[in-house]
Write a protein that binds this DNA or RNA. Structure first.
Lengths: 109, 109
DNA sequence: CACCATTAATTACAAAAAGTAACTATCTTC
DNA sequence: GAAGATAGTTACTTTTTGTAATTAATGGTG
């Protein structure tokens, strides 16, 4: 009978929230604006907005407003967010070695 | 404009499926039976059954039947599944360093 | 000043997935 | 053939997602 580490459980809860991994991966590529992320990722504005708000609350994403015309709002990773880079890298590494060509277009059902 | 790696997207789709991370982490601790996993993890039989079936289809989990009384069915990780250990380890590492005490009982909203 | 453009969201509503608890199937011993 | 054990499945409710239309803030144009 394994006991579940509460910190691990919390971290998994975060990372297994739909789209969070892709958002982190996008932001590891540098600061992004809302509309950039919307076109980079297959996610709608409604969920992107929710996820960014959640990640900001968790201290992983930072939001900066520039009062130009038109208003510019930039999203970037905090130190806590950038610390997730090894996780994303290991996922990429596993993907490169173990995701086969045929699997690419199959959903997980 | 970042382009999304399809392999990464597929891997993230898998890992961000609710409960998959916890199931992998449990199975990294060794072979498990259905009822063991059910009591290790905060997941119901319905979803545990779904996720194990999905992970088996993805070639990550192996299912072995022993026709004893009562029937014994064991779940374990394939090589492809065990290759995810570094991912799980990096998540654990991030959790240890960045998940604070106060955060432990908050959900991601 | 009325009106359009731009960015960053939010709202409303239908569809899909998750949570919960009760039920089924199979085999075995009594 | 009734009861107990393991491994699921079913039926039903609640929550989360997906999609598209709408709003808010700001500034420029005619």
């Amino acid at each position: 009978m394994e006991k579940l580490c509460p910190r691990f459980e919390k971290a998994m809860g975060l990372l297994s929230t739909r789209w969070v991994g892709l958002i982190l991966s996008d932001l590891l590529g540098g600061t992004k604006r809302f509309s950039e992320m919307e076109s980079d990722l297959p996610i709608s504005g409604r969920l992107l907005s929710d996820r960014l708000k959640m990640l900001e609350k968790e201290g992983i994403v930072e939001r900066n407003i520039y009062s130009e015309f038109p208003v510019r709002i930039e999203y970037s990773l905090s130190d806590k967010g950038r610390a997730l880079e090894p996780v994303i890298q290991e996922i990429q590494c596993w993907a490169d070695n173990h995701v086969t060509e045929e699997e690419l277009n199959t959903e997980c059902e």
